[in-house]
Design a protein around this nucleic acid. Structure first.
Lengths: 195, 195
DNA sequence: ACCCCCATGTAAACGGTTACATGATTTC
DNA sequence: GAAATCATGTAACCGTTTACATGGGGGT
């Protein structure tokens, strides 16, 4: 059975950014890791309750009313649980790529469809590349940030992957063109030409 | 609301590989697209029934018993639905990367943890790179395959992404080392050195 | 007689999103 | 005092995996 990561995200955020409310945890996630992780309130609030029950977090301002801001603080047990999780290798995630699926089946549609899919992927990869570069510049402008390493590692991954995606898009477009104009032989010839 | 792709995978497989049973559809998926798409029986059988109800597939050997092999054939309506789906741009998938999450929070664990995560990622990326190259060689040895283009496009994506992941791993390891030895300044210096 | 593979199917549980209900606090 | 924003929470629904139940057919 796969173990859900939600609880550890919450612990991680509370460890990094001090006592926070569920609302603020979500805002923090949106501003930091949103390009590779998101959580919804429907996940956050019940999980916070569970973490509190298990003593991994504690109410940072007890005695607050029912509908008031309720900041949570990570406990020592919580930090230990977080550390243990950080030490475990990530679990294999089910990969599902709709774009690849469509390209794999693309011979059942006019080839314009495949070309359009690739062109679109290229555009979005380029946009993402620009975003990541901007985000890196932003991060590097604050060298005092204790999370500098974590931010840079993750942003760099995004940037490199976006560039690789662009590279693949160019090659994929060339493949489709070769296949269109000269069938299997032309495709194979095109494939042999690296780059 | 996101639209589920499962039905279109089934239609796509039936369009490519003729009448197949639910069992064989799964086998086909396992042997072709398993590195970017999987389906479980719990998804396949109920969905086949729904597709049949909607007239997108039909029983290819009616009159078979209850527990007998029941191959399905795609109908003309089914092909139309598949084509329409192939023409639509892929829906944005929720990205969730546990490795990045752990690296982002890695300052809350001894830095050996981050190094281990990266080393492991590097190993698996190298293994995947080899697998993709082998699979490409395999596909290219059968130039008559009508799915040659689709196979090559998707395998090439896997290969390029695996290589990019290796590149990032090398850079990430260097980042951690720089941070360890010289803090923010060293890290930034290392970052400026492209490659 | 036994086992393995082919094959269909379902129930339960899970992780997750969406939509909604509710109300406190701040700002204009 | 109206509107926007901060904030908590839950119910319904969805897609998916897992585990299980069932049984036919072929090989040894």
């Amino acid at each position: 059975m796969r173990e859900a990561s939600t609880r550890y995200v919450l612990l991680g955020v509370l460890a990094t950014a001090g006592p926070l409310t569920g609302f603020d945890i979500r805002a923090f996630l949106d501003h930091s890791v949103s390009y590779f992780w998101r959580e919804s309130y429907g996940q956050i609030y019940p999980e916070l309750k569970r973490l509190a029950d298990e003593g991994l977090i504690e109410d940072a301002s007890p005695g607050a009313g029912a509908r008031e801001a309720r900041p949570w603080r990570i406990t020592r047990a919580g930090r230990a649980a977080l550390k243990a999780w950080l030490d475990r290798p990530p679990q294999p995630a089910p990969v599902r790529d709709e774009l690849l699926l469509k390209l794999f089946f693309s011979r059942h549609a006019p080839s314009a469809a495949a070309r359009a899919l690739i062109a679109r992927a290229k555009d979005s990869a380029e946009a993402r590349g620009v975003e990541f570069e901007a985000a890196e510049a932003q991060v590097l402008s604050e060298p005092e940030d204790p999370d500098l390493l974590g931010s840079l590692l993750t942003l760099e991954r995004g940037r490199i992957m976006a560039r690789a995606q662009q590279e693949w898009c160019a090659r994929a477009a060339a493949f489709v063109e070769a296949w269109e104009s000269g069938g299997a032989e032309a495709l194979i010839r095109r494939w042999r030409k690296k780059t």
